[in-house]
Structures are given as structure tokens and as C-alpha cells.
Design a binder for these strands. Structure first.
Lengths: 165, 165
DNA sequence: TGTATTTCCGAATATTCTCCATTGTTGTAC
DNA sequence: GTACAACAATGGAGAATATTCGGAAATACA
């Protein structure tokens, strides 16, 4: 005879959580006080909410976006890659080896025309060539197609589709 | 007869700046104290450095990366786009209108096979279709090609190619 | 060398965060 | 309805952190 109480074991996110997430998506260096004020809750409540959000693993991480042109990085490119074999093993291997390269800012594993996209930042065209020929090309890499990036823009808006009434 | 002193009007970044930038790239929510300890400088020095880095506009921003699957977003896709006309005006217009859509996480303006890449996150396939047909397609959009994203990974490493001796 | 400028540090001050007891709210049982 | 249990929110005190500032140390330049 079980008598399980459910209560608000509520692991759901409510509007307040959503606001906090949105704020941090726009500016991950906001202080707890700033967030609390913006959302309209007590500081103690806000830090407690943050602790719970972190526990729920809502955030993959918080990252600074840097102006790479000020750091000696003059070329950004998107490299589109096809593999000869799409086994889980090869795909993981490829992704992991790409993430060891500091030139690789992020990776997308795709279903479609190509298998991977790499967003890379390099000093110059020689650096790009060396990177691609020496480190990106593998025996199971079928083809590379490189596009220069004129502009990358992060959207401050962010999609949240929660079911709060 | 001008006698302009230059001194260390040093707008250059040194190794300490580089360390701070790297740390914030990995974790943008580090406290000033944590950064100072990791770099090995006084807290007051560290906050002063941060002020200067911000003044130099090294950072585009600081953003939380959220686990969109926990927020009702079930599909992420990369949309590859070609425009009929690549005038500066059309390109700017297109980019700006894309950034008004909350589904668009970021935009890449490219030189190459396609003109734009959009990284989008949506609830489901109907939402994706509606987004593309109703909001992304414009009279100057020649073609769309959509690829499902299996995995997106941000590299904690980051390329900095400074010329400190 | 001496002087001007900048960077760094540490201590004092100001601010922010965390902990906790209390109060308020909501769901469940009777 | 009342009573109780589980949880969430609050404000305040003490702890932790950040900022300011005077002066020391380092660097640039003549």
C-alpha cells in the first residue's frame, strides 16, 4: 500500500527561472544582486534558485566571447567536413581530436550534406593551411570545404518554450 | 616643436591579460578573487586589469550556454542560406531580421559556398518548418538547406596569438 | 643618472553573498 | 472547513568578496 506524496517535487522551471536564465544568457557576469533586482526577488532567494539551476545542470557553461582580432587572430573560417565512415567510434574520435586544437572554437556534428562543421580562428592563411592539412585531415576524412567568416553574431534573445500556464 | 611622449601607452596585451582572458573564456562566472589567485596577482590588480580589458573592448560579451533540451527545445539545426543579391544592404537587412527571431542562436556571414549559416533551436519539426517558411525565407533568399545538429560542443581552449617576447 | 609614468600591492572601506530563523504558501489528509 | 507537511521566500547578521586609495616598485625616457 503505497502512499506516495508528490507535492511540488517540482523540478519544472517556472517564469522566475526563465528570467534568470535569460539574463545570464545575455550577460553571464551579472552579480547575484543584479539578477535578484532585475527579477524582483530577494538576494537570498536568487542565490538559492541559482544553486538549484546548477544542480539541475541547466547550464553547460559560461563563456567570454572575445574579439579575436585584438588577439592576433585575423582569420575566422567555417570548415565543412565529410567523413568516409560515420561510425560512432570515428565520429567521437574525430570530434575529440578537433577539440584538442586551440584553433577550433566549436564543433557541430550534423545530419545532412556534411558531417561536421568546425568554427576555427587562425593567425593567417598559412596558419589555416597548416591547420587543415596537418591536423584536421585524417585518413577517414573524405572532404573539406572552407568558407571565410565575415561576421559572427550571437543573438541575445534565446528560445525557451516552457509550459507554464 | 612637439615632443610627444609615448611611454607605455601600452595598449598591448601581456601574458597576464592573456591568462585572464583564457580563464574567462573557460568560465565567465569566475570571481575576481578566483581569477587573481589563478593568475597570481593581487585582487586589486586583477580588478584593475579587468577594467582595462573591458575598456579596450576585448570582450564581445559573456554568455551562459544552456541545455536547450531542458527548456522545451528539442531540435537544433544549421540552416545554410544563399541570397540572390549580396549587396551590403541586403546582407545587413537579412542578418538583422534573423537576430530578431528568438529561435536563432547565432549567425555566420560567410564567403564561400553559401552566404549565411543560422544556428537555430526549435520545439519540434513543425516549429522548424514554420520558422523557415514564415520568417527566414525572404524574396532575396535563393535557397535554404537544413541540417539537423546531433551535437554542438564549445572548445574550452582558445586561440590567442600575442607577440609577447 | 634623475624624473615622469605606470603597475602593483596591501590595508581600509564598501559592497555583496551566504547562512539561518522566521514567515508565507501550497498540497494533502481528515 | 482545519491541521499538518513540504517547500519557497524573506530579511538580517556575519562572512566573504570587491573596490578604493596611498605609497612602493618597476619601467620608460632624457
Amino acid at each position: 500500500m503505497e502512499n506516495i506524496r508528490k507535492y511540488n517535487q517540482n523540478n519544472e522551471l517556472d517564469k522566475t527561472d526563465e528570467q534568470i536564465i535569460r539574463l545570464l544568457q545575455k550577460n553571464a557576469r551579472l552579480s547575484n544582486k543584479q539578477i535578484a533586482a532585475a527579477v524582483g526577488i530577494a538576494e537570498s532567494t536568487c542565490s538559492e534558485r541559482m544553486r538549484k539551476l546548477n544542480k539541475k545542470k541547466i547550464f553547460f557553461g559560461f563563456h567570454a566571447f572575445v574579439d579575436s582580432s585584438k588577439l592576433g587572430t585575423n582569420i575566422e573560417a567555417m570548415v565543412s567536413i565529410k567523413l568516409t565512415k560515420n561510425t560512432k567510434e570515428k565520429v567521437e574520435d574525430f570530434k575529440n581530436s578537433m577539440l584538442l586544437l586551440p584553433e577550433v572554437i566549436n564543433t557541430y556534428h550534423l545530419a545532412g550534406h556534411s558531417d561536421f562543421l568546425l568554427y576555427v580562428a587562425v593567425r593567417d592563411k598559412n596558419h589555416l593551411r597548416d591547420l587543415l592539412m596537418d591536423h584536421v585531415t585524417k585518413d577517414y576524412v573524405k572532404s573539406l570545404e572552407t568558407s571565410l567568416i565575415y561576421d559572427f553574431t550571437q543573438n541575445p534573445l534565446f528560445p525557451i518554450y516552457l509550459n507554464h500556464e
